[in-house]
Write a protein that binds this DNA or RNA. Structure first.
Lengths: 158, 158
DNA sequence: CTGCCAGTTCAAGTCAACTTGAGGTCAAGG
DNA sequence: CCTTGACCTCAAGTTGACTTGAACTGGCAG
């Protein structure tokens, strides 16, 4: 199989066609040529998309991910950057662990009001002092599964 | 101390005055009255801000947090909601753990290119298949420490 | 009495990562 | 040859949580 079109790339990668165009515009991927108007991608774009997905999942921004590719297109990933991100993740994980335990306790706590539960109040103080850093769960994607191939006809979610 | 003004509330809570106004507009906090134009807050607003900070840190949206207050202003937190959030955090934590370990390995891996490292490729596949859900580390706040009290004169970051 | 300046309002801007809309093109099938 | 519909471009919209700008106000020090 040589040269996949955008619908196929979308189907195979699970990334929407509009996102592929967006990524191309951002320089994260490149189309190899055109057939008429239509982009043609090298199948290697799928590896690249996987790497992008991995980077996103690890918490890298698209701009950061862009730096992970050498000019020749092959990944050139700074190991120190990976280690730093691992450290960052570790810190995040520790905070989330504390938060989860606190929530769990608060959920099970028999105190009539949460305000009377020492554990909850301790959490509260930690949050107020900023000891439990910010974080935000990404809003879920529209559809993570492979697209249907049709782009216009997709049922629009309200 | 009865009735803090916005600058004081900001100083004591570490939340910016503009954010306090925003929270008030959203109905998350309420000012108790005015002196001239200036809002006056009941000191209890500080507890409320702590609870909001906690909720944010746990990953609740402001809208969700808004539901955690009874009409009388006292927190009325659904324990099942806390348990559910704890579960969610737990899932997130597991994914982040896997990601951290993978990154750690990739950072230390002796393979000449990451693409030749089986662990890295396994991670890649997991990410491509969506097994490692989305997440996004919130961009860091401007200043987590207590504000200076001046709002206009603050050095603007470029 | 006057001016200062921290406070006020309201609209608009920011950021990231996409998505959507309108209007256009073209390769292939009938 | 003509239609069809998937793809194209480019601009603008979306989301959440705020921040910023411009124009204004009023309590208090001098």
């Amino acid at each position: 199989m040589r040269d996949v079109d955008i619908a196929e790339a979308a189907r195979l990668s699970g990334v929407r066609a509009s996102t592929l165009r967006f990524y191309e515009e951002k320089g994260l991927i490149a189309s190899h040529g055109r057939r008429g108007l239509r982009r043609l991608f090298d199948p290697a774009v799928l590896d690249r998309l996987a790497l992008i997905a991995l980077g996103r999942a690890a918490g890298f921004s698209l701009d950061e991910i862009a730096t992970m590719f050498a000019p020749d297109g092959r990944p050139r990933i700074d190991r120190r950057m990976l280690a730093a991100k691992a450290e960052e993740l570790d810190r995040t994980i520790r905070k989330l662990n504390a938060m989860r335990d606190g929530l769990r306790h608060a959920a099970a706590c028999p105190a009539p009001s949460h305000m009377e539960c020492p554990t909850f109040r301790r959490l509260l103080r930690a949050a107020a002092s900023g000891a439990i850093g910010e974080r935000k769960a990404r809003r879920p994607p529209r559809k993570s599964l492979a697209a249907t191939g049709r782009e216009k006809g997709r049922a629009r979610e309200p």
